[in-house]
Each structure stands twice: as structure tokens, then as C-alpha cells.
């Protein structure tokens, strides 16, 4: 492409954007709103994922050892646990360690535990903390090992874990469906909006064809126009998401402490990487689709 032509294309694209003032603003608005919703859902989805992963990390089976079991039964139990194919981690927690943990948890009120220390007085039991390779398998595995000899009882937070997994799965599914639908809508809307600006200029395109302009010569200004509109439309949601998310993170951290969140800087980088090319791509795609019909002269 010659420099002279490039200048002409850029100039034409800019002139066209200004000439179609309101239409251009509408195009930018459509891109911005679509990408804003898309971006917001991405953020929610990413954080729900993070939260789910976090919860999964914490999900474990606690197996309390039957106090009446002898040393041989205990060793046999440990051997079976360690060789279990679905268990990723098997960790023995003695009742002394359990007492230490309880003390730490109680903090200032640890003095209440005085007198319960020592081999004889400790009311807590020896236990194993087990992690399954696949967190969702926890119920099945717990049911299975419950019946091993030497097991007192198992605790895996049944009644909490399952609904939680179902809920996060559902959220992820809804988010994905929503994003897919939104992306299709975006392409549709943008193509339609740009088609209107092309339609306004159909006479110009026809004359260009008659006086011997090549198809690419006609296309380029629209491609520049589309990519410029798309880019502007993408910058707006990136800014809104950056400041909005920052505020949201601050509020959540001050009010609901236990929810893990992705830092704003990281999200913004991700959003720029995703939304800018997407905006430009949508703009270009919309232009190419829209011009094609009018090139048949």
C-alpha cells in the first residue's frame, strides 16, 4: 500500500466517522456496551472459578480412627489409604497436633483448654486428613472408606460440599452460555450498524466502481473506520471495568473477607488483551461483511 493511498484511506475513514457523527457514536456505543457486558461476565466467571478452586482446595475428608482399634489394624488402615487410587494426599494428625490447632484457633480463649492436655486427658482423637485427586469424587470415596476396619467415622462436610459444587457448576454454565450469546449478538449489531454507514455511502461506492476503483481501494477506508470504531468501543469498557472492578474489590475486601479475588491490575491486563483485539476484530468483520454486498457493480 502506497503512503499516499494510506493517507487517503485514513483521511476518508476519519471524514466518514465525522460525517456520520451520530451513527459513529451509536456504533461505538454498541461495541462498548457489548464488550462491557462481556467483560463483566468474564470477571465474574474468572472470580467464581477462582472461588471454586479455592473451595475445592479446602475440601477434605477427615477420618477419625476408632480408639478401640489395635496397632496392627491402624497400620493396615494407613496402608490401604496410601495405596488408594483416588486419594492424592493422606496426612496423619495426632490428637496432640489436633489439640495444638484447636488452641491456635481459639486464640485468646485457649486457656479454656488447660487441663485437657496430655496423653490421658486429651479428649480428641487421632485422625487422617485426606484429599481426593478429583474434588468432586469426595462423597464416593468417603462412602467407600467409611467401612474400612479401624475407622471410627468420616467427616467430609456432606450437605455443604455437594450443593456448592452444583451451584458453582451452574454459575459457570450460565456465564458461558451468556457470553456465547452476547458475542454473537455483538457481531450482529456491529455488522448491522456499519452496514448502515455503508448503505449511506452506497452511491459513492457505486461511482467508485464505475470510475475504476479496485475493490480493495473501496474496502480499506471502511476497514479503518470499522477498526477505529471498534477500538474506541473497546477502550471505554476497559476503563470502566478497571475503575469499577477496583472499587468492587475494595468494597468486597472491606465487607466480605473470605472471598478470594483476582487483583485489578491483572484483570485489566487480561481485559486489554481480550477486549481490544475483539473490538477491532468486530469492527473489521462488520465492515467487510457490510461492504461486500455493495461491491457487486
Amino acid at each position: 500500500m502506497r503512503v499516499r493511498s494510506l493517507c487517503y484511506f485514513l483521511e476518508e475513514a476519519l471524514k466518514s466517522i465525522l460525517r456520520n457523527g451520530w451513527m459513529s457514536i451509536a456504533s461505538v456505543g454498541v461495541v462498548a456496551i457489548t464488550l462491557l457486558i462481556l467483560g463483566s461476565f468474564m470477571i465474574i466467571s474468572i472470580n467464581v472459578n477462582l472461588f471454586t478452586e479455592d473451595v475445592k482446595e479446602q475440601v477434605q475428608i477427615v477420618l477419625y480412627i476408632d480408639e478401640t482399634a489395635n496397632e496392627e489394624t491402624r497400620l493396615e488402615l494407613e496402608r490401604r489409604l496410601v495405596s488408594h487410587p483416588d486419594l492424592e494426599e493422606v496426612r496423619f494428625v495426632s490428637k496432640d497436633e489436633a489439640m495444638e490447632r484447636l488452641k491456635q484457633k481459639m486464640g485468646d480463649q485457649a486457656y479454656l483448654l488447660e487441663g485437657y492436655e496430655g496423653e490421658e486427658d486429651n479428649p480428641l482423637r487421632d485422625s487422617y486428613e485426606l484429599r481426593t485427586t478429583v474434588p468432586e469424587d469426595i462423597t464416593a470415596v468417603a462412602q467407600q472408606i467409611k467401612n474400612y476396619p479401624g475407622v471410627g467415622y468420616v467427616d467430609y462436610g456432606s450437605g455443604i460440599v455437594e450443593p456448592l459444587f452444583q451451584f458453582t457448576g451452574l454459575i459457570r454454565l450460565i456465564g458461558l452460555a451468556f457470553m456465547a450469546g452476547l458475542a454473537v449478538t455483538a457481531v450482529f449489531l456491529i455488522a448491522h450498524t456499519i452496514r448502515l454507514t455503508v448503505y449511506i455511502r452506497r452511491k459513492e461506492i457505486m461511482i467508485m466502481k464505475y470510475v475504476g476503483a479496485t475493490d480493495w481501494f473501496i474496502r480499506w477506508p471502511f476497514i479503518f473506520e470499522g477498526s477505529f470504531l471498534g477500538m474506541t468501543g473497546a477502550i471505554i469498557p476497559v476503563l470502566i471495568i478497571f475503575y469499577g472492578y477496583q472499587a468492587a474489590v475494595l468494597w468486597i475486601q472491606n465487607n466480605i473477607h473470605f472471598i478470594p479475588l483476582i487483583p485489578p491490575q491483572e484483570i485489566t491486563t487480561e481485559m486489554i488483551k481480550l477486549l481490544l483485539p475483539l473490538g477491532v476484530g468486530l469492527g473489521v468483520l462488520g465492515s467487510v461483511i457490510s461492504v461486500r454486498r455493495f461491491l457487486k457493480v
Partner: peptide
């Protein structure tokens, strides 16, 4: 000028 511009003529 339109005719000349689309064929890449110089200013």
C-alpha cells in the same frame, strides 16, 4: 477529483 483519487493520482 474523485475519479483521479480512486485511481491513486497524486495531489
Amino acid at each position: 477529483a474523485f475519479t483521479l483519487r480512486v485511481t491513486g493520482a497524486s495531489t
